[in-house]
Amino acid sequence: RAAQGRTCGNLGNTHYLLGNFRSAVSSHQQRLLIAKEFGDRPAERRAYCNLGNAYIFLGEFDKAAEHYKRALQLARQLKDRAVEAQTCYSLGNTYTLLQDYERAIDYHLKHLIIAQDLNDRIGEGRACWSLGNAHTALGNHDQAMQFAERHLEISKETGDRS
């Protein structure tokens, strides 16, 4: 049964990489069930992330957000800061797709704080870029400018010409 769980996860990932997102969802849902049977929280966390990602490409952004939120709870329980940061970043982008820019800003700020704690300059740059765009969408041009300037500074430091 445990091997069946891992295989469902691998199958889900393969469907996903092939662009078969409905099949990916189905396999990852199976993987999630088996992870729950075993009380395997890291596997549960992975399944929620994989499901969130597949729902993004199906255009089902509400479902993606629900799954990312479960992944975030588990990442916090498991004290995995890097995964917590990644999931906040995903939630920020998902709420941008849902045009809920206030929530997007909340999650991008959470991502920014963790990226700074972890000394992840690339992550910090991405957070500033995203925050600039979300503030622009809300018409907060002064704040958008501050984040754009921080993004520029970090891009110069990391040698990211694009």
Binding site: N10, Y16, L98
Partner: peptide, 26 residues
């Protein structure tokens, strides 16, 4: 439309490009 505008945000597009190849491996 507004929805298309959100999808065209450059930082979101970049995230989606990365996400397309991102899987949580067993």
């Amino acid at each position: 439309s507004k929805r298309m505008h959100a999808i065209q945000v450059d930082s979101v597009q970049r995230w989606m490009e990365d996400l397309r190849h991102m899987t949580e491996v067993e």
